[in-house]
C-alpha cells in the first residue's frame, strides 16, 4: 500500500492531534501531582534531621524508579475493585501513566525547590524564579515520556502513529509517517523550549541589572 496523502491529512493528522492532547493531559496531571508531592519533599529536606534524611532518601528512590516499570506495577498491583476509605480505586489508563510519571515529577520538583530556596537564602529572588522555566522543561519531558502509555493501550499520540503505521507495510511509508510524528511532537517542544530560553534570558538580564545597581 502506498501512502494516501488525502487520507493522511483528513484522517491521520486530526487523530494524531487529538492523541497528542492526551499526552498533554497526562503531563499536566503528573506535574500537578508532582508539585504537591515535590513541595512536601522540599520542605522535608529543608527541615533537616530525620525528616530531612527520609525526604532525601525518598527523593533518591523516586529519581531511580524507572517510569515504565512503575507503570506496569500500578497496572498490575492494584486489584480491580480495590477501594481506599470506601472510594473505588480503579485507575484509568491515563491516570496509570500520569501516576507512573509522578516519581520523576516529584523528585524533579523537590530538587528544583531546594535549589530555589537556597537561591532565596543567598538573596537572589530572581535566581529562585528559575524554578518556573525548570518546571516548564519538566512539563515537556513529561509530555514526551507519556508516550509510554501506548504500551498499555492508552490512545495517545504515539498509539495513533503506530495504529496507522500498521496499515503501511513499506519501510519508506512507515518512516515518512514516523517523521510526521516527530515533527508534530517537535513543534510544541521546540516552541516550549524557545519560550523557556526567552524567560531565562529575561530573568538573566534582570538579575544582571539588579546586581549592577543604580548608575
Amino acid at each position: 500500500m502506498t501512502m494516501n496523502f488525502d487520507r493522511l491529512f483528513a484522517d491521520f493528522l486530526p487523530q494524531l492531534l487529538a492523541g497528542m492532547t492526551v499526552n498533554f493531559e497526562i503531563a499536566a496531571i503528573s506535574l500537578a501531582l508532582g508539585l504537591l508531592a515535590g513541595l512536601l519533599l522540599t520542605f522535608g529536606r529543608l527541615a533537616g534531621g530525620a525528616v530531612g534524611g527520609t525526604s532525601a532518601s525518598l527523593t533518591a528512590l523516586m529519581r531511580a524508579a524507572p517510569t515504565f516499570v512503575v507503570m506496569f506495577f500500578l497496572l498490575n498491583a492494584i486489584p480491580r475493585g480495590a477501594t481506599l476509605f470506601g472510594v473505588p480505586m480503579a485507575l484509568s489508563g491515563v491516570m496509570v501513566v500520569a501516576l507512573s510519571l509522578l516519581p520523576y515529577a516529584a523528585s524533579y520538583v523537590a530538587d528544583s525547590g531546594v535549589d530555589a530556596v537556597q537561591q532565596m537564602r543567598r538573596g537572589s529572588p530572581l535566581g529562585a524564579l528559575l524554578i518556573l522555566p525548570n518546571l516548564a522543561r519538566a512539563f515537556f519531558v513529561l509530555v514526551m515520556s507519556s508516550s509510554a502509555g501506548a504500551a498499555i493501550g492508552v490512545g495517545e499520540g504515539i498509539a495513533v502513529i503506530l495504529r496507522h503505521a500498521e496499515q503501511y507495510p513499506a519501510l519508506g511509508d512507515r518512516l515518512l509517517l514516523f517523521a510526521l510524528g516527530v515533527i508534530c511532537f517537535g513543534i510544541p517542544l521546540q516552541l516550549g523550549f524557545a519560550v523557556i530560553r526567552h524567560i531565562q534570558r529575561r530573568l538573566g538580564q534582570r538579575m544582571t541589572r539588579d546586581n549592577a545597581g543604580p548608575v
Binding site: N23, S146, A151, I158, F178, G181, G186
Partner: peptide, 12 residues
C-alpha cells in the same frame, strides 16, 4: 530530531 522524538517512537 532525536530530542523531538518521544522515547517510544524512537524505539519503534
Amino acid at each position: 530530531s532525536l530530542q523531538c522524538s518521544p522515547v517510544v517512537l524512537t524505539l519503534v
